[in-house]
């Protein structure tokens, strides 16, 4: 591994804080390498999650158009995606699509896959948010003379948004957890790096996997606590 045992000189923003003849311990080297690989997980999440939201909005929008065949197609897509594994979709995009001359590099295909996969889940979130608005609200807004687009914009959307915040945040956690799977098509994320390091440092597998687990906990635990807060905050009815 590059850098093991090199002299370590830290030049931070505050200037030279610490330098010395201290050899890097294997542990700090593991942490540094894995954390560097963890950036891939972040970049995947940051790229895929907004796309997921947009794609899901498009799906939900298509489904709300009163055109039966379209609704059936979108419904079948959502259900089919939701009942088959992310790993399979990833392999479809990474190994299957090149046969139709659609080629992405590993990172892009991971983003595309996660958008297609989690978009289906997020579309369900939107749908259930809209459908959980009580009928009486719709009737009341009709009585106030709101109709069509203006009712959607002023009544349905704000309410549905509030309802959909906690499950959306849950979905964000799922996207982040899902980034671990991309290791299996050789995107060099933290899990991939971990399995590679496993071959070199066979005896250190507990440390390597502890660092990987801690990485996911350090990011995921605050997110899941945030979801709990949001759940309490965004109680609508």
């Amino acid at each position: 591994m590059p850098g093991v045992g090199k002299r370590f000189v830290y030049r931070g923003r505050i200037g030279k804080v610490w330098s010395g003849d201290m050899e890097d311990s294997l542990f700090t080297e593991f942490v540094r390498t894995l954390a560097a690989a963890g950036r891939i997980n972040f970049s995947l999440t940051l790229a895929a999650f907004p796309l997921t939201l947009v794609f899901a909005a498009a799906l939900a929008g298509l489904r709300s158009i009163p055109l039966k065949p379209l609704q059936i197609v979108v419904g079948v897509y959502i259900d089919a995606i939701r009942s088959t594994p992310l790993l399979l979709h990833l392999f479809f995009v990474f190994f299957g699509l090149p046969l139709w001359n659609i080629r992405f590099d590993a990172w892009t295909s991971a983003v595309v896959t996660m958008t297609l996969h989690f978009g289906a889940y997020q579309a369900e979130v939107y749908r259930s948010a809209v459908s959980s608005i009580p009928v009486s609200v719709r009737e009341a807004s009709t009585a106030l003379g709101l109709r069509g687009i203006s009712r959607f914009r002023r009544v349905t959307l704000p309410l549905a948004f509030r309802i959909s915040v906690p499950p959306t945040s849950n979905n964000l956690i799922d996207v982040f957890r899902g980034t671990s799977v991309v290791a299996l098509v050789a995107v060099q994320d933290i899990v991939f790096k971990g399995t590679i390091m496993l071959q070199t440092y066979k005896g250190d597998s507990p440390i390597i996997f502890m660092i990987i687990a801690l990485f996911f906990i350090a990011v995921g635990y605050p997110m899941s606590m945030l979801t709990k807060v949001l759940e309490r905050r965004f109680v609508v009815v």
Binding site: I173, R177, G178, S180, V181, A183, L184, V191, G194, T195, L198, G203, S205, P206, F209, I212, A213, F216, I217, V219, G220, Y221, M223, S224, M225
Partner: peptide, 23 residues
């Protein structure tokens, strides 16, 4: 509950399969 929910399944699978033999 909280840790099990955020550590991905794949990592847990690898832990049971690759780490436990060390013990």
């Amino acid at each position: 509950v909280q840790i099990g929910r955020v550590v991905p399944e794949l990592v847990q699978v690898f832990i049971w399969y690759y780490v436990l033999p060390d013990y």
